[in-house]
């Protein structure tokens, strides 16, 4: 324990810049997206307290499903066998079905909380924000 303070400072100096360089924008953009939607929806206190846990759960599952597909594609080499192709083809269809089912299930629950009008606003807000993010990404690739 004699040099605990010095070790602590050393750890910050070593790991600080490393993790700062390694971090990505995902968390930042996601927080901003949520704030953007929150602003557009103008939820009341009681709506907000019910809406966000359900909406977070929906997004979490939806992303997990998409990520699962993405990773399956990444795992396969460029030239794949017919069996692998068949497996991916099925997974693609399963994923699309799961996305649709999740949408149906959660949009109904969310509609009960905020009403149909705000569900339309939610869709428009999500779309508007997605466009903003796409512009940033495209700007970099140009």
């Amino acid at each position: 324990m004699k040099h605990a303070g010095k070790i602590l400072i050393l750890l910050v100096l070593i790991f600080g810049p490393v993790v700062l360089l390694a971090q990505n924008d995902k968390e930042k953009i996601e927080a901003l997206r949520v704030a953007f939607i929150n602003k557009k929806l103008e939820l009341s206190t009681s709506e907000s307290e019910k809406f966000w846990p359900v909406y977070n759960e929906y997004n979490e599952k939806l992303r997990a499903v998409k990520k699962n597909l993405r990773q399956s594609y990444k795992r396969k080499p460029d030239i794949i066998s017919d069996a692998d192709a068949e497996e991916l083809f099925k997974l693609e269809a399963q994923t699309k079905q799961a996305e649709l089912d999740l949408y149906k299930q959660y949009s109904e629950r969310l509609k009960q909380i905020v009403g149909v009008k705000k569900m339309v606003i939610l869709h428009l807000a999500e779309e508007e924000f997605r466009q903003k993010v796409l512009e940033i990404v495209k700007g970099k690739s140009d």
Partner: peptide
């Protein structure tokens, strides 16, 4: 939440979004 979007980002870091 931050006040504005980053000026640039790469696709890999936001592929979940």
């Amino acid at each position: 939440p931050s006040k504005k979007l980053p000026k640039s980002t790469n696709l890999q870091s936001i592929e979940d979004l």
